[in-house]
Amino acid sequence: MCQLFVNADARLWASKTKSLRIDGVVTSIRLECFFWEVLDEIAHRDGMTVNQMITKLYLESLDADHDVGNFTSFLRVCCARYLSLMADNLLHRNDQQALAGVDAPELLQQEADKTLLRQHHRARSSSCQ
């Protein structure tokens, strides 16, 4: 199992800092190259640059009254959730389908249902041991 992770391209966990302007303020974000690649894929799906998408996420987070104190962690979680949704077959790696066109409430409900089902299976398997 470990070789799958340890022998991966070391460039993926190298950090890269990008500067961008969010709401008129210049800031920088430091993430591992792996996350920059996933953010690029997500942005590409909706016809945006990574900077445009990050700005959109930031402003929408503020509108939703989220604490954006650790915005870099939020971006990492966005990437992980994107990949998790694909692993659960709730999204497909299809550049033709913009995420803006996805039925978010329905997708979030399906995600919650799958999470609950996984938890139920783990609880049952641990009680059988």
Rank of each mutant, 00 (worst) to 15 (best):
A104N: 10
L90M: 05
P105E: 04
L107F: 08
S61F: 05
R45L: 03
S84N: 12
K114I: 01
A104L: 08
N70Q: 12
A123N: 08
Q96W: 08
V50G: 02
T115R: 15
D65M: 07
R45F: 08
F74R: 09
R122Q: 11
Q110V: 01
D40H: 13
T72F: 04
D95H: 07
N70V: 06
S126I: 11
F71D: 06
L99P: 03
S73G: 11
E60S: 03
A123P: 00
D95L: 10
L99I: 02
A43M: 02
D113G: 01
H121S: 05
T115N: 14
N89F: 01
L107M: 12
A43Q: 02
E60N: 06
T49S: 15
D113K: 15
L107A: 05
H120W: 12
V50Y: 13
H92D: 05
P105L: 07
D46G: 01
R124T: 05
D113Q: 14
G101P: 01
A43I: 03
I54T: 05
L57G: 01
M86V: 09
D88S: 09
H121K: 14
P105H: 03
H44Q: 06
L62S: 07
C79M: 05
F74S: 04
N89L: 11
E106P: 01
N51W: 09
V50K: 14
D88R: 15
L116K: 13
L108P: 04
L108Q: 13
R45I: 02
E41P: 00
S125K: 15
R118V: 02
Q96H: 07
V68D: 00
S125I: 09
L116M: 09
H121I: 05
L75Y: 09
